[in-house]
């Protein structure tokens, strides 16, 4: 069972935690503890420089040099049967040592093993595209560019994939504010109406619980509709009109409860 922690100040606590808190790592095992991984690592080491390698939660993690990546993945795909690139992206370590960590998650269906290839690049540095090897890298590299601003050389279509093409900033950077910077806050207003409309439309209201029943600029109360901007008081008469035929209508009798018969026997 998980150890009990007090939950009464859990909401307040979130404000005081360090945003760049580094979680404790799961234990690492030696590569020699797995025969398949040990053979794979030996094959990789024979051709490429390996900085570090270990097994973490049944995955082998291998740290390599950035400029080896294309040849390494080609070798792994063709020789070591790691035929799928299931995921790739970057990790923002700019706050720690001004680098990005790029990872490639490889899967071998034959060996039933997963290897994670990792390397670090400096800020502003580009990576080599592996789109020619794995089609899945096409969109992943575009997403990496979109979210982190890391470009991939030799990519056929190095453009943003999630955010609009004219977006500024890279949202998955840890320095990017969650609720957006100045550009993001006014993006739709600037684009559709122009910057001069900012005064008319006003800033975003981030407090979703905000309700003002006396606000007749933005809301009308049901049954108490007033013209826009009218001052609302508490003692107003109901102005609702459900149907325009409320006084009765041509050819149709008004259905009313008193003169109707309620049938409560389904077997009647």
């Amino acid at each position: 069972m998980r150890a009990y922690t007090p939950k009464d100040d859990v909401q307040a606590k979130a404000y005081y935690t360090d945003r760049f808190y580094v979680a404790p790592q799961v234990p690492k095992q030696d590569v020699e503890s797995d025969a398949v991984f040990a053979a794979d690592l030996a094959a990789i080491k024979a051709r490429f420089e390996v900085k570090d390698a270990f097994i973490q939660v049944t995955n082998m993690v291998v740290y390599v040099n950035a400029n080896d990546i294309y040849n390494l993945l080609e070798f792994m795909r063709d020789e070591l049967e790691y035929t799928q690139l299931t995921e790739m992206s970057a990790i923002d370590w700019l706050a720690k040592d001004d680098t990005f960590e790029i990872f490639y998650q490889m899967l071998s269906m034959n060996k039933r093993k997963r290897i994670r290839i990792k390397y670090s690049i400096n800020k502003g540095q580009a990576v080599d595209s592996v789109e020619k090897l794995f089609r899945s890298a096409d969109w992943s590299e575009r997403e990496m560019f979109d979210m982190f601003g890391i470009e991939a050389n030799n990519h056929p279509f190095m453009k943003r994939i999630l955010m609009p093409y004219d977006w500024q900033g890279h949202p998955l950077l840890k320095t990017y504010p969650l609720q957006g910077d100045e550009f993001a806050a006014w993006y739709e207003v600037d684009k559709i109406f122009g910057k001069e409309a900012r005064d008319v439309i006003g800033p975003e209201i981030r407090d979703t619980a905000r309700v003002d029943r006396y606000d007749s600029e933005r809301f009308a109360r049901l049954g108490y509709e007033v013209p826009k901007g009218t001052k609302i008081t508490d003692d107003m008469e109901k102005t609702t009109q459900s149907y325009q035929e409320e006084g009765g209508v041509f050819l149709i009798k008004k259905f009313d409860k008193e003169t109707s018969v309620v049938i409560d026997d389904p077997q009647r």
């Binding site: 969650l178 609720q179 957006g180 993001a184 806050a185 739709e188 207003v189 975003e204 981030r206 979703t208």
Partner: peptide, 28 residues
């Protein structure tokens, strides 16, 4: 729904905080 009304749970950079910022809304 909440998202179209106010942005709802998506209090983030990528969501319009209420579609009434773009078009006039009759009913929420």
């Amino acid at each position: 729904g909440s998202c179209a009304n106010t942005g709802g749970m998506f209090n983030t950079y990528a969501t319009v905080q209420g579609c009434d910022r773009i078009i006039p809304v009759d009913l929420y």
